[in-house]
Write a protein that binds this DNA or RNA. Structure first.
Length: 223
DNA sequence: GGGCCGATCAAG
DNA sequence: TTGATCGGCCCA
């Protein structure tokens, strides 16, 4: 990377979202940083993403154990929204990647609200600062009004409530860092989390806590 | 049918 | 650090 003469590396694949999403999930996740996601009124600039592979290869993936009614959308074509409910109260948004049947996806973890802040605030009354409006997967989903109804809708052709768009300007790839994923039990050594270095809207990284009986491990770890 | 756990968030 | 809160998935 970075083999480019004169100036910072630019994200030259961002203009082809379809091609980007058709590829490997980690490549897609990196390329999605800087992209825009809008529900028509609220627009979020993605600052943090996380890649998940499909069957077998990735213990952290919802599709790891095989196809179920919940993860069904993951097995479909790229560019569709896979929305899941977790912790009894939160919705999270994924973008399906790869060929049909691959069941790979990118979790959208955080972003900056760049338009429609008033509506985003009304959806996220708990956040005291605008920087927190979409700082975290569930917060971002909430800011965009994402719930179960968004699951299975297309993000590329305007047929659904959400639309994904390329970055408005060049993305400085030297600022896009990668590291271990959040809350994933297996394969945490895989650096499949991508974020904009120094961006205040990036969620704080927490090493996976093995649950109870933890002991020494499990100290929150800010990067 | 029962029980456990989670790709989280916000408050103490 | 912990409680909230419930659907999915495994096992019986």
């Amino acid at each position: 990377m970075g083999q480019r003469t004169g100036g910072a590396p630019l994200n030259d694949v961002a203009h082809e979202l379809t091609a980007l999403l058709a590829g490997a999930p980690d490549v897609a996740a990196r390329g999605l940083v800087g992209c825009l996601l809008t529900d028509g009124e609220v627009t979020v600039r993605l600052t943090e993403t996380e890649a998940y592979a499909g069957l077998g290869e990735d213990p952290g993936s919802h599709a790891h154990r095989g196809r179920t009614s919940r993860n069904d959308v993951m097995f479909g074509p790229a560019g569709f929204a896979y929305v899941y409910f977790t912790y009894g109260m939160h919705w999270c948004l994924n973008i399906v990647t790869g060929p049909v049947g691959a069941a790979a996806a990118v979790l959208v973890r955080a972003g900056e609200v760049v338009a429609g802040a008033p509506l985003a605030r009304s959806r996220r009354t708990a956040s005291r600062h605008d920087v927190d409006l979409a700082r975290g997967p569930a917060r971002l989903a909430r800011a965009l009004g994402v719930d179960r109804s968004v699951n299975g809708t297309c993000l590329l052709d305007g047929s659904g409530p959400l639309t994904l768009q390329p970055p408005t300007g060049p993305v400085d790839l030297t600022l896009v860092r990668s590291g271990p994923r959040v809350g994933v039990t297996g394969g945490h050594d895989t650096p499949w989390r991508f974020w904009v270095d120094g961006d205040r809207t990036v969620s704080t990284y927490r090493r996976h806590v093995p649950r109870r009986r933890g002991g020494a491990e499990g100290m929150p770890d800010t990067h």
